[in-house]
Simulated scan of single mutants.
Amino acid sequence: MQTETIGTATLETWTPEEVAKALDAHEVVLIDVRTPQEYMFEHIPGALLMPMAFFDPANLPGQSDKRIVLHCGSGLRSEKMARMAFEAGFDRLAHLGGGFAKWKEARLPYIGTNMASGAPKRVTP
């Protein structure tokens, strides 16, 4: 994990492997900030959807029990939303460095779409 101090806040950048391990241990809340269409096509199992267009830091859960980890397709939107949350008073947030692209590159499982039926399917690379 890399950390960056932004004013009085700390932005943590996690690797896909760190996020996967924390998800498996139920230590994080993973929030996908991509569009609903991107999420429906493919997403990380257990990720909640809060699209960037409707992102409101006031609606984020507290972090007393679990760290919040934001993610998007490449890491750009999730970092931008973390910075927005810092402006709203959050002092520590994490995001998935490289986003969903790095998750897939790391060959971690995700929910994809069966192109023949349109139904969701588990993808284990």
Rank of each mutant, 00 (worst) to 15 (best):
V29P: 00
K104G: 06
T113Q: 10
M50Q: 07
A94P: 06
E27A: 14
D32K: 02
A53Y: 03
S74F: 11
M50H: 08
Y39E: 04
E105L: 11
M84K: 15
S64V: 07
A94D: 10
M84Q: 15
P36S: 13
K102F: 14
P16S: 03
G75V: 05
I68D: 00
R34D: 01
L108S: 07
M50T: 03
A58K: 14
A25N: 12
P51Y: 01
L70R: 01
K80N: 10
G73M: 13
P16F: 02
Y110K: 07
P36M: 12
K80F: 12
D91F: 10
E105V: 10
R67F: 10
I31R: 00
T35H: 02
I44V: 14
M84F: 10
V69Y: 00
L30W: 00
A53E: 11
K21M: 11
L76C: 12
A94S: 14
V29Y: 01
A101W: 07
A20Q: 13
E105W: 11
S74L: 10
E17F: 10
G98E: 00
Y110W: 14
T35W: 04
E18F: 07
M81W: 00
G97C: 06
M52A: 10
E42M: 08
L23Y: 06
G112Y: 05
A58N: 12
E105N: 13
F41L: 12
P61M: 02
A106Q: 07
P36C: 13
G112K: 01
P16R: 01
I111R: 09
Q37L: 15
R83M: 09
P51W: 01
E17Y: 08
E79Y: 04
F54S: 15
R107K: 15
C72F: 03
I68P: 00
L76A: 15
I44C: 05
E42S: 14
A47I: 04
R34G: 05
K66A: 04
A47R: 01
D24I: 06
V33R: 00
L76R: 14
L60K: 03
M84S: 10
F90R: 04
D24G: 14
K21N: 13
E27W: 09
F41Y: 14
A82E: 04
T35I: 06
A53L: 04
E79D: 09
M50S: 06
A101L: 13
L48V: 09
I68M: 02
A85P: 06
P51H: 02
E18M: 12
R83F: 08
K66C: 05
S64C: 09
F54L: 14
A25I: 05
S64H: 14
G46W: 03
P61V: 03
H26I: 06
D91N: 11
A106N: 10
L60H: 02
A22T: 11
G62T: 13
A47T: 05
L30S: 01
A58R: 13
G112A: 09
P45L: 13
E87S: 14
S64M: 12
L48P: 01
K66D: 08
E17G: 08
G112N: 03
N59F: 12
H95K: 08
H71A: 02
M81A: 11
F41E: 13
H95V: 03
E105F: 12
I31T: 00
R107E: 15
T113G: 07
A85S: 14
M40P: 02
